[in-house]
C-alpha cells in the first residue's frame, strides 16, 4: 500500500511494517485494559461458578502448547519464504493455521464445558470478564487463521514469492502478538490463583 514511486523512506523502514508495529503497540493497551478488568474483578463474583471451580489447567496447558508451537511454525514459514521455498512456505503457513484452528477448537470446547457447568457470560462478573477477554483473544486468533489461509492460498497459486516475504512477515508479527497475549492470559487468568 505504500507509494510505489516514493523515494526511500526517511528511516529506510517499510511503511507497512512500521504501521503494523504501531498497531501492535496500540493493541497492548486494548488487551491491557481487558486484562486489568479481569484482575480488578478477581474475587468480585457474587455467585458461582467461581474461577477455580471451572478453569481446567491441564487442558489449557495443552492448548497453550499448541499455540506456542504454531508460532514456531510461523517463523519457519517466514524462513521458507525468505529462502524462496514455495513448498516450505505453504507447509508451514498451513501448519500455523491448523495450530490456530486447534487452539480455537480447545476454546470452543472450554466455552461449552463452562456453559454446561453453569457459567455463561451473564452469570456473574467473572463470566463477563472471562468470556469478553478470551473471546476477543479468540476473535484475534480467528482473524489470524483467515489471514494465514489467504496467504497459503496465494502461495499455492504462486503469487507469493521471495519479494513478497514482507506480507508473510507482517502476518507473522500479528500471529506472534496474539501468542504473547495468550502467554499473559494463561499466566494471569489460569495459573495465578
Amino acid at each position: 500500500m505504500e507509494i510505489a514511486h516514493h523515494p526511500p523512506t526517511a528511516t529506510g523502514l517499510d511503511n507497512r511494517k512500521l504501521g503494523f508495529w504501531t498497531f501492535i503497540g496500540s493493541e497492548t493497551l486494548f488487551f491491557g485494559s481487558l486484562i486489568s478488568t479481569y484482575m480488578v474483578y478477581k474475587g468480585a463474583a457474587v455467585t458461582g461458578p467461581y474461577p477455580h471451580e471451572v478453569l481446567n489447567i491441564p487442558v489449557t496447558s495443552v492448548s497453550t502448547f499448541v499455540l506456542l508451537t504454531s508460532s514456531l511454525a510461523m517463523v519457519l514459514a517466514l524462513n521458507a519464504v525468505q529462502r524462496g521455498s514455495r513448498a516450505g512456505t505453504l507447509t508451514w503457513l498451513l501448519a500455523t493455521a491448523i495450530g490456530g484452528l486447534i487452539f480455537l477448537g480447545f476454546q470452543a470446547y472450554e466455552f461449552t464445558t463452562f456453559v454446561h457447568e453453569g457459567l455463561t457470560i451473564q452469570t456473574n462478573v467473572f463470566g463477563s470478564a472471562f468470556y469478553v477477554l478470551t473471546g476477543f483473544h479468540g476473535a484475534h486468533v480467528s482473524v489470524g487463521v483467515l489471514w494465514l489461509l489467504t496467504l497459503a492460498a496465494l502461495t499455492a497459486m504462486g503469487k507469493i514469492g521471495r519479494e513478497d516475504s514482507l506480507k508473510v512477515e507482517i502476518a507473522g508479527l500479528y500471529w506472534h502478538f496474539v501468542d504473547v497475549v495468550w502467554i499473559v492470559i494463561f499466566t494471569l487468568i489460569y495459573l495465578i490463583p
Binding site: E2, I3, A4, H6, P7, P8, T9, G12, L13, D14, N15, K17, Q82, R83, R162, E163, D164, S165, L166
Partner: peptide
C-alpha cells in the same frame, strides 16, 4: 514494494 523494503529484503532474506 518500495526500494527501501527491497533493500531490507537483501539484508534479512539474504
Amino acid at each position: 514494494m518500495s526500494a527501501a523494503a527491497q533493500d531490507q529484503e537483501s539484508v534479512v532474506g539474504g
